[in-house]
Design a protein around this nucleic acid. Structure first.
Lengths: 214, 214
DNA sequence: TGACAAATCAAACAAATGTTTTAAACTATT
DNA sequence: AATAGTTTAAAACATTTGTTTGATTTGTCA
């Protein structure tokens, strides 16, 4: 890689990071190319030069953010070899919460962006589902299956959604939770406790499907 | 009310309904007053004349939609006198799902709008939380308390959020669920089954806090 | 009926914004 | 050092959009 390409990459990267913040803060429509470029110390035309346009930049940012997010908190974090499904579930839930609630050094715009994309989907969502969400979902269903081996495929899916729903609520519902007097920040210990609660609630909930066919 | 005021009211109402659809479809930013007025068979200036501006119209629409939604599906629907908390929980969950999943005659833009507002909050959210969400939340916590009387206030809150999270996931996660091969439409029987699943999962989950202090 | 207010309408206004253009600066290769 | 290709910069462009204006119509009441 020549040094020309290196500076190229750095402006690209600066734009990606700046765009992530601005898109997360204002949403796609209200975010302006001008603010992004100002934040990235780049010229207004640089977005069109490097990405082709605002929309393409956005798609790039979403994919970039989702991947970074999963790599930072893999769902099997801290698990030893041959883990019990109970431990796997706990790790899955904990990593899931971390992805959204932990304030990482970057400013954690990934999660906000992802939430927006889920509720207000654009073309970028298709790629995220394919590359990030689908594998995670498959993994969770495998864990659930081990916990309730007699349940039908449909029931396993429903139970998995019950678990994911609990996690995502703390993300999607954040503005509401704050306005209801809930916490604005989550320390590591808070996230740990939350994960333990959801894991306990869910393991108990799964008991309803244990040992009986659908 | 004079007939002048009646026509006034009807254009107002037409604008509210049209705006609800357009805002839900495109989001606040991308929705244009021109499209709203075209849909409402009204002049471009009518939004400013009747509401003062686009933002005020939006705030009005959000509040209007949230109220209509709860009135259409009250959380105590179909309950007899002195219901068991288990039945109350089931009714609460079922009405909650209906609010978001049932396609009502209006085109059900309420729910979409509400989801947008939760993820990308504006000033309008404060009012919705105060007037609609808070009372619903209080009701749910009261039900949960009856089911786990020994649990702490914090734990009751967490359990309530676990329940709401399961319901909301089918709303917020809809674009993802569809892309994962899930259903696009929910018939009444589907909603019923879903409610039963969530109620069962949750009642089972709550057992973890039954009969023991925090 | 006639006057007054409310409502509607077509047209214009003013601001913001994504994009394009054209030239300058920079980098690497010969 | 010269040149070709790449990247950056400032300014202008074209379009969209919320809002305002002033005239016109509609409805009500004396």
């Amino acid at each position: 890689m020549t040094s020309t390409q290196i500076t190229h990459e750095t402006t690209r990267k600066r734009l990606l990071e700046a765009a992530g913040q601005v898109f997360a803060q204002h949403g796609f429509e209200k975010a302006t190319v001008r603010e992004i470029c100002r934040k990235a110390n780049a010229n207004v035309a640089s977005v069109n030069y490097h990405f082709g346009g605002k929309e393409d930049l956005y798609a790039e940012v979403v994919a970039y953010g989702a991947q970074q997010s999963v790599e930072a908190f893999p769902p099997d974090r801290g698990l030893g070899p041959n883990p019990l499904p109970e431990a796997e579930l706990n790790a899955f839930i904990h990593s899931f919460l971390c992805r959204f609630l932990k304030k990482n050094q970057r400013g954690s715009w990934y999660s906000t962006l992802c939430a927006r994309e889920i509720v207000l989907p654009t073309r970028a969502l298709d790629r995220v589902v394919r590359e990030v969400i689908r594998p995670l979902s498959d993994r969770l269903e495998a864990i659930v299956r081990r916990l309730v081996p007699r349940a039908s495929k449909l029931e396993v899916g429903r139970c998995a959604r019950s678990i994911v729903g609990q996690c995502l609520f703390y993300h999607h519902g954040r503005p509401v939770i704050e306005r209801m007097g809930g916490p604005k920040k989550y320390a590591d210990a808070d996230i740990r406790r939350l994960a333990d609660h959801i894991a306990r609630f869910s393991l108990q909930g799964l008991r309803g499907w244990k040992g009986r066919a659908a």
